[in-house]
Design a protein around this nucleic acid. Structure first.
Lengths: 348, 348
DNA sequence: GGTAGCACTCGACACTAAAGAGTGCTAGAA
DNA sequence: TTCTAGCACTCTTTAGTGTCGAGTGCTACC
């Protein structure tokens, strides 16, 4: 690919900026009038024709202005755009919303998602952390019925997971309490990803051989953990913001989009992959993702975690035409700040 | 109001049936051709004019067919329509989906909501039970940080609630365990609505006076309960089904609707009121509810509970034009069956 | 290399006409 | 008295037409 001259870049930037603002195809005259470069529309047209040949711009129809392609946007994001700094007031506002530590972490994540959506006027999304990356804090067995035991599992960062197992034999709450005590002592601070191994190891140990109570406790914990691993959830808020974008005036498009949002498992997978791919902010533009229904959307995301360990991912989903220079720092800051809030309880 | 003759009723029914099927205004000729009554279009027209005068039908514009009004639909539902029985196969299908008791109750409710939406091709809705109507089963305090204590509260039916309190003084997990034991013993099987009184009562008692540990446990439990009471949540699934209805081809309408769904608190209030109003199935048609955004929707709902006690409410939200005769029995059956599933653990 | 001018293309919009569905009313039949 | 056939009328929908304007590509010229 031919290298872009300074002027080419300026034109590309002008087209994109204008397009992001208006959503309409941008004509040569518009750019010329802006006066960033003092050249005539005709000159601009020549440059635009070049850019189109390189696949950076696109003409929806012969006599229309130009619209950036995914490739064009990508180039712009990677090497032309300057992210704005967040004003102090903006940071304060985000802090205020997240700082009042709410009732439970579920609500914190949900609130984060809502904040992102309102603040960026797009859909906000937060992925519930995968349990496997957390550290064990506490387990509790509660007898619900003659064969039902409820298990509540809590991670150091304060994430709660509940599950439910069948237990063939009659068992009392007092016994279950003993189970809890055994397991809590055993697994204190162990990463949940290695809990299972740890249990298996212990099962082969001497104590389990002679202490039936202990070995049954291990068995129960094993089952509970098995139920827990694949658990995942996601909060998508502010979907209706997307409707306000003129690009979704089309009902058919809107419908596809809502369908995509309702089938959460696929979005979870997308986010999961994204999280593993990078530790910093990441942008996926339209066709760069594999979900058919999201081909016209982009995702701006960043992992969050407790201190250094990444736990989940949060971000903003919106149309290709978004105010990236504003949203990127918002997502970045939110992730950083949320990590701090969560990290507090994880540290000691 | 003049009483309806048999023929009037037949015409009303025919109009409504046809309208529910097609969504288009229904003309006199259409009904005549159906051949339910052997009369000419002109006769039907006379009857329709009468019905319109009574406010049961409406003509969108001078030269169009008729559409039922809310009043007309209400009359139809209350005294003309015959609910279909669910076929055995249909019942089986519903059972299958709900019976495999899932990981946790949250998932069970969510799954119910999804099932309703898929099965009725509208939006399904389930209200998370209010904690106040449940009975106490178990409480657990877990130390998260020097000043943070996480509280997990479990009801007999297996509902879990987590909250989070600040505690001014340093406290060890061992102490917290003692707290849990005290409170669990004290509150076993008490209705959560009277837990607070019970605690206050106990605080004035002799034991609290002399046993500081006990009185501190009470204090902590009191705070936890305070956080818990107003908690409520709702699952709305299958919103995209609504988009498939031609009446929502209009983007503006769609947008209002999505906004309504995103502001869950108002829908929760609506359901809450509905739940208290009646013990059986209940239908709210369009303008009969107070939410501006839902004026064009109706809600078919039924309370569910553990055994006899109503806990929450579930139902289907869709446009005025719904296949009531099919959906009503589905909602009814689902509520009954869900109550059974939940009831199991509540009984002993 | 940049610019001005010009002919051309295409979508948006407004306007018109025709088709079709459905009604209300009236006069006559059962 | 009740029903029906017929007719004039109303209103929406759809297709078709003409005009306007934004924007382009090309060419000749500075």
């Amino acid at each position: 690919m031919t290298k872009l001259t300074q002027r080419d870049q300026s034109v590309l930037e002008a087209v994109i900026t204008d397009y992001i603002e208006t959503g309409e195809p941008v004509g040569s005259r518009t750019i010329s009038k802006r006066g960033v470069m003092n050249v005539s529309p005709a000159t601009i047209r020549n440059v635009m024709a070049d850019l189109e040949e390189m696949g950076l711009l696109l003409q929806p129809h012969t006599s229309a202005g130009r619209v950036p392609t995914v490739k064009g946007l990508r180039l712009y994001l990677d090497s032309i755009m300057q992210s704005r700094q967040l004003a102090r007031g903006e940071k304060e506002r985000i802090r205020d919303i997240l700082q009042n530590r709410p009732q439970d972490i579920r609500e914190l994540l949900q609130r984060t998602s809502r904040m992102l959506s309102q603040y960026c006027r797009q859909a906000g999304v937060v992925l519930w952390p995968r349990f496997t990356v957390m550290r064990f804090k506490h387990i509790e067995f509660i007898r619900l019925g003659s064969n039902h035991v409820m298990v509540v599992l809590i991670s150091k960062a304060g994430f709660v997971h509940q599950t439910h197992i069948e237990w063939p034999e009659e068992i009392t709450q007092a016994e279950l309490d003993k189970f809890s005590r055994y397991i809590n002592e055993l697994l204190q601070n162990v990463p949940i990803s290695s809990v299972k191994e740890r249990i298996l190891e212990e099962m082969r140990g001497e104590k389990a051989l002679f202490d039936t109570l202990f070995s049954r406790a291990l068995e129960m914990a094993k089952r509970a953990i098995q139920n827990t691993i694949e658990d995942s959830d996601i909060y998508i808020e502010g979907q209706s913001n997307l409707l306000d974008n003129p690009e979704f005036a089309d009902v058919e498009r809107m419908r596809r989009l809502l369908h995509a949002f309702e089938d959460k498992s696929r979005i979870i997978r997308l986010l999961d992959v994204t999280m593993k791919a990078s530790s910093g902010i990441q942008i996926i533009l339209g066709t760069e993702n594999d979900l058919n229904e999201l081909q016209e959307m982009s995702l701006i995301s960043s992992p969050y975690g407790a201190g250094e360990t990444p736990l989940g991912i949060l971000g903003v989903i919106g149309p290709l035409r978004m105010d990236y220079s504003r949203i990127i720092p918002v997502v970045e800051f939110t992730a950083k700040f949320l990590s701090q809030v969560i990290g507090v309880s994880d540290e000691e």
